[in-house]
Structure formats: structure tokens, C-alpha cells
Amino acid sequence: MRTVTPIQAHPKVRLRLLAAHLKQAKRSWQLLVLFSLPLAYLIIFQYWPMYGAQIAFKDFIPVKGIMGSEWVGMKHMTRFFGSYDFWRVLKNTIGLAFYHLIVGFPVPIILALGLNYVRQARFKKSVQMITYAPHFISTVVMVGMLLQFLDPRTGIVNQFLTLIGVDPVHFMAKPELFQTIYVLSDIWQNAGWGCIIYLAALAGVSPTLHEAAVVDGASKWRRIWHIDLPGIMPVMIILLILSMGNLMQTGFEKVYLMQNPVNITTSEVIDTYVYKVGLISDGLNFSYASAIGLFKSIVNLLLLITVNQIARVVGKESLW
């Protein structure tokens, strides 16, 4: 026999609960207004554009619109997979993404652990300010600074190399150096900002654990390994999962600004390739560019789900 709940049996109860919720919402209208702003942002700029993703499966013609364009299925995906640029662009994107993850992910952790053991407050605050200040520099300005620093004639780096007897190097004209320059400059810009999260996590580690470890004669390295790292491990896992979810999102602006005809063999990634075939090429291949972007998003989604499941099984920490 099916059990009937009181709410199902009495419609008046549902009305009373609805009235109670509306009354509570009225009392907290300020919070609802604040919440409506990010909600509207997500709907307008994140969810509503998903409607246009269907042009990846159509021969989109602006005059006909999205619904009026002809459905072609996987035509554009197949074209991309079979193109000459597919493996080169995919290799550059994955290589740059993993290089950035492997080198860049531990740096904020190491910086936070080091600052956590600094006892001089003035020195600690100075290092924090100096390290996270570059985060507020715009991408255009950052790339402009890189080009000035690495200029083969007037750049400060090559001037230093000349002083020690080394010939000047045209860094931006060497394809093999592009990924290193990109990753190291990104670490310089964002490592200090990223360490703030880990410093907050370290502040939540119980001081009694360190006091007991000091009494037992544990060194700082032992305390870091057995107390600090396990204490911030949940935060590390969550941030790693989020990083894997954006692994293919290498960023368009910085890569595009650092590109030149000489280093294009290693600097062409999916984001810049989509921009060129979608907006710069003569044909304005909106459908083809959308198919490539959709492919990248699908890969990011699969990576996010996979890493989240692995973290859930192994470390019992996950996003869901």
C-alpha cells in the first residue's frame, strides 16, 4: 500500500509552508538581491550561451539563424579530427596545460608553507604583498613587460647575460622556450595570490599538534610532512580537481599576445586556433570553430569527472 504523507493529504499544509517560505524570503530580501547578481551572471553568460552550442552540428548561416541553418551532425568534428592541424594543436594544448599544472600547482603550496613558519610579521607581510601584487597586472601589460625584459638588444635579461659573457638570446624567437616563458611568467604573476588559500587552510591547523611535535623533538620538515600537509590536503585535492576541470583552458589572451610567426609551431593552442578559424579566416567558419570549442569543453568535463571520482575513491575528498 502506498503511504500518503501529510503534505500530500492536506493541500492547506502546502499553502501554509509556501506562505512561511515567502515570509522568510521577505525578511531576507537583501540577501536574495545580492544572490541575484551572480545568479544573473551565470544565467546570461554561462548557461544561455549553451543554446548556441548547437551550431557546432549545423552549417550555420547568420541570415538563416541558428534554428534555420542546416543540420550536419558530426561533420565539423570529423573535419577537425582529420585536419593537418589537429595533432599539432592538441599536442601544444595538452603539453602546455600539463607543464603548467606540474610546475605551477606546487609553487603556491611551497610558498604558503614557507610563509607559515616566518615569525617576523613585517617580513611576512612584505613578502605576501610583493608576491601577490603581480596578480593585479593585466594580461596585456604583463606580456608587454615580458617583451621588454626579454628583448634581445635592450632587455634586462640579455643585458645581464652580456655582463657575464653570454651572447644575447632572442627568447621569443625560440619555439622550444615558449612554454617555459609562459609557465614561469604565470607563476610569477599568480603564485602569491594562490598561496592565500593555503595560508587560510594552514591557519586552521590546530597549534596543539605542533606543540606536541616540538615536545617530541620533531623538526620543521617533519612537522610540515606529518601535520601541515595532511591538514591542507582536502584543500589541495579540491583545487587539483578544479585545475583538472580547466586543464584545456590554457587561456587565449596571453598565448595570442605572445605568439609570433617564429614560435607558432609550439604556441598554437586550441583557443587561438578557434579564434583564427572562426573570426579571422576568410570563410568565417563559426560552426567549425564552435565544434572545436565544444570538443575542448567535453574533454574538460571528462577530466573533471574522472579526477573527481579518483579523488573520491582514494582520498574521500571530492566536489560531489
Score class of each variant (00 low, 15 high):
residue 92 N to D: 04
residue 100 H to T: 13
residue 192 G to Q: 04
residue 153 R to G: 08
residue 108 P to A: 06
residue 139 T to G: 10
residue 103 V to W: 14
residue 181 I to W: 04
residue 118 V to T: 01
residue 169 V to G: 04
residue 194 G to M: 08
residue 101 L to M: 12
residue 176 E to Y: 15
residue 123 F to H: 07
residue 138 S to R: 03
residue 111 L to D: 09
residue 133 A to Y: 15
residue 123 F to S: 01
residue 135 H to T: 13
residue 102 I to C: 02
residue 113 L to T: 11
residue 152 P to L: 11
residue 131 T to I: 01
residue 193 W to V: 06
residue 154 T to K: 07
residue 182 Y to P: 03
residue 116 N to S: 11
residue 180 T to E: 07
residue 194 G to C: 08
residue 136 F to T: 08
residue 182 Y to T: 04
residue 189 Q to E: 02
residue 114 G to D: 10
residue 115 L to E: 09
residue 132 Y to M: 13
residue 121 A to I: 13
residue 186 D to E: 15
residue 100 H to P: 05
residue 115 L to W: 11
residue 103 V to G: 06
residue 143 V to R: 03
residue 148 Q to E: 06
residue 130 I to E: 08
residue 148 Q to A: 08
residue 109 I to G: 05
residue 149 F to E: 08
residue 107 V to M: 10
residue 157 V to A: 05
residue 123 F to P: 02
residue 154 T to Y: 10
residue 181 I to E: 02
residue 97 A to P: 13
residue 186 D to K: 13
residue 136 F to K: 13
residue 138 S to M: 09
residue 156 I to A: 03
residue 121 A to K: 13
residue 129 M to L: 15
residue 185 S to E: 07
residue 102 I to F: 15
residue 165 G to N: 02
residue 144 G to M: 02
residue 177 L to W: 09
residue 127 V to N: 02
residue 102 I to G: 05
residue 160 F to R: 06
residue 137 I to P: 02
residue 97 A to S: 06
residue 116 N to A: 10
residue 158 N to S: 11
residue 169 V to F: 02
residue 139 T to I: 11
residue 194 G to H: 10
residue 145 M to F: 13
